[in-house]
């Protein structure tokens, strides 16, 4: 079975408020809030760590949940977040967006 990689979509806006992550879609400015599990997934979605590893190290470590079920739920959640363009998912590692933060200016 192929592994799944997840990355935060760089076009969304995000902020933690009261322990919940607020996410504004870059596609249509729809606002979402993520529950605790989804927030953990969001924060760990660096494009390089496979989803099964995130589930094992971050979700199963935090919640009392059966690993296979957690993996299935996380995959469903990741695909749902991807459908809203909040997360990017791929069977390959996802490269971070190149940054010009300390570089180019007009």
């Amino acid at each position: 079975m192929s592994r799944l990689f997840v990355a935060r979509n760089p076009r969304v806006a995000a902020r933690s408020l009261d322990g919940e992550m607020m996410i504004m879609s870059g596609r249509d400015s729809t606002l979402f809030t993520l529950n605790k599990t989804a927030t953990i997934l969001w924060q760990a979605a660096d494009g390089a760590t496979p989803l099964d590893q995130i589930v094992e190290q971050r979700i199963c470590a935090e919640f009392e949940v059966e690993p296979a079920q957690a993996q299935q739920d996380a995959e469903t959640l990741a695909r749902e977040l991807a459908s809203h363009e909040i997360l990017q998912i791929s069977e390959q590692p996802i490269a971070p967006v190149a940054s010009n933060v300390s570089g180019e200016s007009r």
């Binding site: 760089p10 806006a13 902020r15 940054s99 933060v101 570089g103 180019e104 200016s105 007009r106």
Partner: peptide, 21 residues
């Protein structure tokens, strides 16, 4: 846009700090 560093600031605000700008 008269700030010569405008895009540098915007990129920092969006990419590093994920503000809704």
């Amino acid at each position: 846009f008269l700030r010569k560093d405008f895009f540098e600031l915007l990129e920092y605000a969006r990419r590093e700090l994920t503000f809704c700008v």
